[in-house]
Amino acid sequence: MTRKAQARLGVLLVVPLLLLVGIFLVFPMINAVYYVFVDFNGINPAPPWVGLANFTELAQDPDVWAAFSNNIIWIVLGTVGPIVLGLALALLLWHVERGSVFYRVAFFLPYILPQVAVGVVWGWIYEPSRGWLNKVLETVGLGGLTTGWLGNPDTALYAVLATAVWVTLGFVFVILLSALKGVDMDIVDAARLDGANGWQRLVHIVLPQIMPVFLMVTTITLLGGFSVFDIIFVMTGGGPAGASEVLGTLAYSSAFQLNRISYGTALALVITLLAIPFAVWLNRLQRRVSLEGTS
């Protein structure tokens, strides 16, 4: 009797959720798989079947490889940067009590801002003639380094990347700081008494204790690097001349500016396929972390 009533309510509670997910997530996903095997231009109701042609074209497209290598740069620097800086900040704030709320707000705030707004303001900082970055460089005698950061093909990607690091490091910082609060201080103190220096204590005592969380936040940041879009789209639009193009911006412009719907979908699908191994790994890690938490 109870079981039946439970099952009935269970189904009732889940139906609206399944409807929403089915219509707006699963259905377009299945459609995506169909799109990549045809040549759809957005208009023809019965697009011709082309098999793997979209993928073979993609593999030979120099723009795709350029975008892909930008993604790799983004994934490596956009992960290492926030992790190193976020960890350093978390260690710095670890035992500070006074003012810790203010510091936490200051470091985390960039992460919750809309990236369009972030892009606008950093665009001003990078402005060639009046921007703060060039002004500061001139003031400290590094005037030779000044450039139009977003307009120069050599610097555009890295300038946007620096902004992304500024955005992401607060996220890494907050998660690592809360992991640090769970570190067993008795072991750290014992190591100190045994003569371990700060670096040794960090590498041999502290890091192993926060390793699951550390790996998890690394993977989350890394995964973000595959589907980066907003900030590049707003700050450079992938330019100048494709210098900061990534797979995400390329997929968007193929589909919505060049009406190459199938090609754009194939590109987007490639992003997913590349990211899935990391996503699965993240999922395993998270299960491990939450199991440790509940035990």
Binding site: L17, L18, V21, G22, F24, L25, V26, F27, P28, M29, N31, A32, Y34, Y35, G42, F226, S227, F229, G248, A251, A255, F256, I261, G264, T265, A268, L269, I271, T272, A275, I276, A279, V280, N283
Partner: peptide, 20 residues
């Protein structure tokens, strides 16, 4: 079915969703 959305990024299906 519900949590597959955690694994598959929005990118994958954003284009077909437009036409849908």
């Amino acid at each position: 079915v519900v949590v597959v959305g955690l694994l598959v990024p929005f990118f994958t299906y954003m284009i077909p969703l437009y036409f849908q």
